[in-house]
Write a protein that binds this DNA or RNA. Sequence first.
DNA 1: ACAACATACAACTAAATGGTTGTAGGTTGT
DNA 2: ACAACCTACAACCATTTAGTTGTATGTTGT
Lengths: 117, 117
Amino acid sequence: MSTSDEDRADAWFHALADRTRRDILRRVLAGEHSVTALAQSYDMSFAAVQKHVAVLERAGLLTKRRQGREALASGDVEAVRSVALMLGELEALWRGRIARMDELLAAPDTPTTTETD
Amino acid sequence: MSTSDEDRADAWFHALADRTRRDILRRVLAGEHSVTALAQSYDMSFAAVQKHVAVLERAGLLTKRRQGREALASGDVEAVRSVALMLGELEALWRGRIARMDELLAAPDTPTTTETD
DNA sequence: ACAACATACAACTAAATGGTTGTAGGTTGT
DNA sequence: ACAACCTACAACCATTTAGTTGTATGTTGT
């Protein structure tokens, strides 16, 4: 494959780690917006907003379609779900810890090979 | 309040935007690990790993407790759930878009005041 | 007491980030 | 045709970040 899961996760979380980008994502998830329309909402240059949109696009969190001279940005809810899914996997690891604690409490004698190295 | 929700979100996503930190978080969610134990898993200096742990700690994604000379790090699953919750809110915004589309399809005459500014 | 160990932090460097201004190209409407 | 508009990108700058090494402090076991 070209980009690993970890590369994608890096891009996702990096894109989400900026409040302006999160706000842009909120808007484009709620509905299509042109880049200039988005830019008018923030106290920074058009180019800065355009770069934020590009970061979100590279991360796969939004897509753009051309309509005449406008670029209409739209949030990709599937990508958002993928990020949430990754967090769900982290939570599953935690549940595994609890399960191991239960094992220990249930069978104090059994050597459960907790540490392997 | 001292730190806004956005500040916390910045810290969360920034902490998660590094693969080493995500891996550390996986390990400490699965069970307590000392900082040196964690450091032995990665091809970088102890200080580098210690800084990654500090970033996760500042973000509230893990907590440390002292036991003798060791600092035992443990993942905070509640914080992970909070991050997932924030993504859920993004998804809800998207569902709002769909709801508005339904409105439009159901009542093509009604002026639904889509844009307010 | 003392050597080995675990952590913490300061100081430094290279690279990435978030912002700026400027320029260039495609689209629209008169 | 042409002016106004929308987008894209390059070049630059200040700050942050991810790594390094070195040093200081506390803990453990003999």
